[in-house]
Structure formats: C-alpha cells, structure tokens
Design a protein around this nucleic acid. Structure first.
Length: 430
RNA sequence: GGAGAGGUGGCAGAGCUGGUUGAUUGUACCUGACUCGAAAUCAGGCAUACCGCAAGGUAUCGGGGGUUCGAAUCCCCCCCUCUCCGCCA
C-alpha cells in the first residue's frame, strides 16, 4: 500500500514512477474518488459536530432539569441527511481503499528500466561453470536413475506438479534445509521460527498476496460462526513471519528483527500451464528456507545487501555457480521496491535458474500491516520489511544433483553436506 | 464439545445504574526545576488516523450490527484470551 498522502501531494510523480514498472495509474479515478471522499467526509463531520454539540446541550439541560424538546426537534432536522451520509461515507472510503490496494509499490530509484526478465541487470557472476566430459542428464533422469525421485507415484497420490522423494534423496533434501537453517542461525544472527502454514486473509493482505493474487493461492474454506472465512496455505514463509509484527509497535532497541523459517510453500501456479512441467522446478508444494528482516527505514538498503549475502553464502558453501541479477521495474513483484534474484547454474538446461529472490519492501507491507516501531522521538513510525529465500530447498537439490553428477550416474555429495548425511560421499544407484 | 470469566491508551488497571469520559489513576517515556552529576522530589507534556492555513472538528474503548438526540457503558451476532470438565497427536 502506498502512502495516500504521497498520492495527494504529488500524483504525477507517483504515476511516472509506477510507469517505470509498467503500471498505469488511473489518476483521473483517484482524483474523482478523492474529491468525492472529501465532500462527503467534510459534510458528514460537520453534521456530526452539530449533533454532538446538541446532544451535549441536552445532557446539560437535563442535568439542570430544564425542558429539552426544543433541542430535540432541532436535532431531528439533521438526522435524515446525516444518516444518508453516514451510510455513504464508508462506501467511498472502501472504494478508495480498494483502489489503493491494487497499486503496486514504487520502484526504488536504482531499479533498472525494463519490461521483462530480459531487461534484468546482471550484478555479478560467481563460481565456475563445470565442464562435463559426458553428456549431462537433468535432475529427473539423475534422480530416477538413483531411485529416489518418483513423479508417477506423486501424481497418483496428489496430482501433477507434486514430487515424491525417498531414501537418500529425501535425506539430502533434509540435509540441505538443515545446512541452511544452521548457517543462518549460527552465522548470520537469525532467530529460527516455526510458524503456521495456514493463515487468515488479514495476513495475506498484509504482505500483499491479497486482494490481487488470490488465484495463486490454495484456499481452505472454514466455517466461522454464521458465515464462512478462508484459511490460505502459505505460498512462502514470508507471509506468517512478516505478519508477526502486524499491528505491533516494536521498541527501537529491538531492531533489527531477523527471522529464519523452513516451511513448505504452496502455490497453485495458475497461469503457468506448460511451463517447467518436467521435474521439480515448478511445484504446487516445495520447501523453502526464508529470511525475513524488519528494520529501521534508514538501514533497509544496507540490510538488503547483507540479506542477499546471507543467501549467497549457502551457494558458496555448496560450491554451486550462480549469478545475481537486479530485477528491472517490469519484472518485480507487486510489493517490492527493489529485488535481487539469485540464479543457480543448471547444466542440463545450460542456463541460470532462479533459486532465491531477495527484496526490500520498504514501508509498503508495513503500511498494510500497521507494523511500526517507536522512533527516537517516541512516535510510532512504519518499519521497513525485507525477505529473501535462503534458499529454495527443492531447487537447491536440483542444482546439486545436476552440478555434482558423474559419468556413472552417481552424484557426489558436497563437502558441507556430508556431516548432515552421516558421512556419505556419493549417492549411487543400488 | 460443555460450563464460567474476560478483552479499555506502551504496560497495569478504573469506568460499564447511558450525557461536560478520548476516557480516573499508577507506571513507563519526554521536557524543565533542584543537583557537580545521578537517584529521589516537584512542575508540565505524553494514543492513533483523518479533515482544516489555523482555531478547531470527526472517528476509534476486540470486530460487526442495533437501540438512542447521545453508547466504553444497553441489546444481538462473531472473533480472541483465560480457568474447569470432556476428547485427542
């Protein structure tokens, strides 16, 4: 959610900035809503003031035992118009709210111009792309060859876009998550958290998934008293973790807050039919270790760089080649002001694929959530929120399988992972 | 699932026989006085959002609806928390 003051004060600049990410702001509609709101609100408050004053007089008169019917008659003349306006005002305010809720965040000045993935800017390349003296296989062939990756059975159990890991692959998957959690808690100062995987609509609104992206979410209907309300399966741990501070005022000395959570993520992947249908790149369910920070506004860009570094550390440790790209305006997510993607090298695809996305949301989420801190002057002020994958566990497994594959179909276990896998040095078919 | 208690400002905690109560008080916090300095003490300030150049106004006492000229206070529905019983990984 953008600051409505900013829209009121400098609509053309806001519109121009939003255009940088390919969003066309309907300024006419905004001004219409704003004008309507203003007249109705002003008039309503005027009438309310009159009514309140009269009511007060009635109270005082009654206390003295005086006659009040004259004042009552006076109040009665207000009530019709007031009732109408009081009914209308919330409608206008809601319309404005709905309008604001669909406006994406303003891109930071440093965000490159561009429309799509193709316009993203490479920040750095790290590691050496491996040369294979044999024909590389993709993770599906490798996994099925090893016997631990079974899409057929997953499809029987659930459907397409699910996977089933068994034995040594399941263990490696777990080992990767452990490595990530241990690294972030022990070396990067994050607090480990265990969170709900089903959340309410208010939380989804807080981080920006609702109202605009409901079709991307899995919904779980739930009987609530007379009506029905939904639970939503989390598409990322960002949602429950960031919402920890919703409607909170964090004491200044507690900042920055840094949390890490390992959770499954559920995405309906509506609209991505036909994309990445082979393998475990794009699934309805996948595990991710997520880094979340809530920080003082002055430090959020420094925090973004360090958070990005924390995610990169995992790839260093696993010795996987990757690159960092800065997303252009047109490729950024709805709520982000700046996003870096980390893309890992996948030999079978002969390209880099996203394995992490690290963003600074500035106050965009905090404003929706009313997540604040008490500043040095003692006044509540909006926090800045950030998050990034550190990393997507399933895709990391894919990257390890493909980058560490050997001619005989076995897969070497990265050095750092071995302590988490009982000292096993290679995965072999048996 | 059954029975009861409760949800008020950063925190604690009044008010709840409807009227000058946006809300007593304590505490925390800020400013000033005193002090070499601090503590203690004293004086003042101290919720949020919105409208307004300002004066000032409006809204908000878990959420929603209702009664009323007027609701933190009365009525209805819902959510949440706590205690006891039952059930259960």
């Amino acid at each position: 959610m953008l600051d409505i003051q900013q829209l009121r004060n400098d609509l053309t600049t806001v519109a121009a900035n939003l255009a940088r990410r390919g969003f066309v702001l309907d300024t006419v509609k905004f001004e219409q809503l704003e004008a309507e709101r203003k007249t109705i609100q002003t008039r309503t408050q005027e009438l309310q003031a009159q009514r309140n004053a009269n009511s007060k007089r009635i109270g005082q008169a009654k206390a003295k035992g005086e006659e009040v019917s004259a004042i009552l008659a006076e109040v009665a003349t207000l009530s019709d118009e007031l009732k109408q306006l009081e009914a209308k005002l919330p409608q206008v305010l809601q319309a404005m709210d709905a309008f604001l809720a669909l406006i994406p965040n303003l891109p930071h000045d440093s965000v490159p111009a561009g429309k799509s993935e193709a316009d993203n800017v490479e920040v750095r390349k790290v590691g050496t792309i491996p040369n294979f003296a044999f024909e590389v296989k993709d993770h599906v062939s490798i996994g099925e060859g090893l016997g631990g990756l079974d899409f057929e059975t997953a499809t029987k159990i659930a459907g397409s876009r699910f996977s089933l890991l068994t034995g040594q692959l399941a263990r490696m998957h777990r080992a990767l998550a452990q490595l990530m959690l241990d690294t972030h808690t022990e070396q990067h100062g994050y607090t480990e958290t265990y969170v709900p995987y089903l959340v309410n609509a208010a939380s989804m609104r807080g981080t920006g998934q609702l109202p605009k992206f409901e079709e991307d979410l899995f919904k779980v209907p739930r009987q609530m008293g007379d009506g029905e309300e939904n639970f939503y399966l989390i598409p990322t741990a960002e949602v429950p973790v960031t919402n920890m501070v919703r409607d909170e005022i964090v004491p200044l000395e507690k900042l920055p807050l840094k949390f890490v959570a390992h959770t499954p993520c559920f995405r309906s992947e509506a609209g991505s039919y036909g994309r990445d249908t082979r393998g475990m790149i794009r699934q309805h369910q996948f595990d991710k270790v997520e880094l979340v920070q809530m920080v003082h506004p002055d430090t959020s860009y420094a925090a973004l760089e360090s958070l990005l570094g924390h995610a990169e550390t995992i790839l260093h440790k696993l010795e996987l080649p990757y690159r960092v790209v800065k997303l252009c305006g047109g490729d950024m997510g709805f709520s982000a002001a700046t996003t870096y993607d980390i893309e890992v090298w996948l030999p079978a695809q002969n390209t880099y694929r996203e394995i992490s996305s690290c963003s600074n949301y500035e106050a965009f989420q905090a404003r929706r959530m009313q997540a604040r801190f008490r500043n040095a002057q003692g006044k509540p002020e909006l926090l800045h929120t950030l998050n990034g994958s550190g990393l997507a566990v399933g895709r990391t497994l894919v990257a390890v399988l493909e980058n560490y594959q050997q001619a005989d179909g076995s897969v070497r276990v990265p050095e750092v992972l071995r302590p988490y896998m009982g000292g096993v040095t290679a995965l072999c078919a048996h």
